[in-house]
Write a protein that binds this DNA or RNA. Sequence first.
DNA 1: GAAGCATGTGACCACATGGTCATATTACTG
DNA 2: CAGTAATATGACCATGTGGTCACATGCTTC
Lengths: 213, 213
Amino acid sequence: MPKKTFFNLPAEKRNSIISAAMYEFSANSYKTASINVICRESGIAKGSFYQYFADKLDLYVYIMTLAIEEKIRFFSSALSESNNPGLTEQIRMLFLKGVEFSKKHPLFAALGEQFSKEDVESAKSAVIREGGKLSGSLFLQMIQDAKDRGEIDGGIDPFALSLLLQSLSSAVSMYMHDRFGNTGYEINKEEVDNFVDSLLNILVHGIRIKNSI
Amino acid sequence: MPKKTFFNLPAEKRNSIISAAMYEFSANSYKTASINVICRESGIAKGSFYQYFADKLDLYVYIMTLAIEEKIRFFSSALSESNNPGLTEQIRMLFLKGVEFSKKHPLFAALGEQFSKEDVESAKSAVIREGGKLSGSLFLQMIQDAKDRGEIDGGIDPFALSLLLQSLSSAVSMYMHDRFGNTGYEINKEEVDNFVDSLLNILVHGIRIKNSI
DNA sequence: GAAGCATGTGACCACATGGTCATATTACTG
DNA sequence: CAGTAATATGACCATGTGGTCACATGCTTC
């Protein structure tokens, strides 16, 4: 946690530090991100930085926590908006929302991606300790609910399905990013929808030809 | 490509450089991996290093190419050993071989993982340029063949399925690594098999309850 | 104004980085 | 043996790092 001097700062200055740090951590790993750069870009002195934060890790955990909170807020508000549709629709929504999120908040998305790649164990575990629940449990809950409603085959391993969904969700975002780069999501909406439909179709019906067995 | 002086080296020295470099690049990103450390660990002088390699990138590309070649050799020999079983069995084999590979050649696997995370564009593209074909095309070929054999639903988007398989394959290895760490693969063989079966079951039959529709 | 306290500051530290280069050592050739 | 070409070497360079610290500035209270 940042020191109280940081929170006493005028909002403008505080925000300029935050956004400089977000940018730096979104473009670099924990190790290669530079405090010097963050200071330069946000226009504060090196000494001041250490008046606000205990050390590099302190800032890193703070920034990552902000990004995680934003993402959770985004998804849970999207989930609660919908009126409890079936699992399929929930999954479709999560995939599309994932794409939407990385288009709307590219900085936050980039932070998340950078974090998922993170090597430095101390940095990673410190963030997780702070961040609490992961998105994995979200999927697990959805799956369990769908099972209770009798919506999916009872023999399905919830854990395996959850892993599948998680890896798919990030794969979709990655694919979209590779394919369309930073061009608007709205422009390619149709193609995105089709692609997600294809994946969902495989997921729901399996790859085996219908009517066999 | 390393300079000819490198290939003139006695095999022992050459190998000690290679293995020191592999270790360093498997534990660090391109940027954070250290030439100094590689020199120290392999017992050569800094100046000698630059007699063998043009620069850091030269070494990086060389090492990564070695790892990729090894992986391709491993998989293609495994694929050709089998007598053309169905797609399901091919997929199962690839998943299991993926786990087996990371158990048998943890250094090579770690190199691959590190590469997939790589940030530095120049490093990444230089390796890809050298490495040629990716594993993605392997999946695509398998899918197309299976379609031609009428084994899977013609309506399935091969590209979507390929992406799904790719992301799943790496997810399986990652999950296994998280779950069992460096303990032997043989010990947990049963659990690994079960997990892969669960995933395959979802993939083949879909998540919808049987006999509905 | 004075005293006290919270903040701001940048020169500085020890250390590490990728890369160079003049020089020393070795190997080969006549 | 001499002479030449190949290779080995580590001090050195410019640049960067996270972090510290003595000091300067500003604000608040008496």
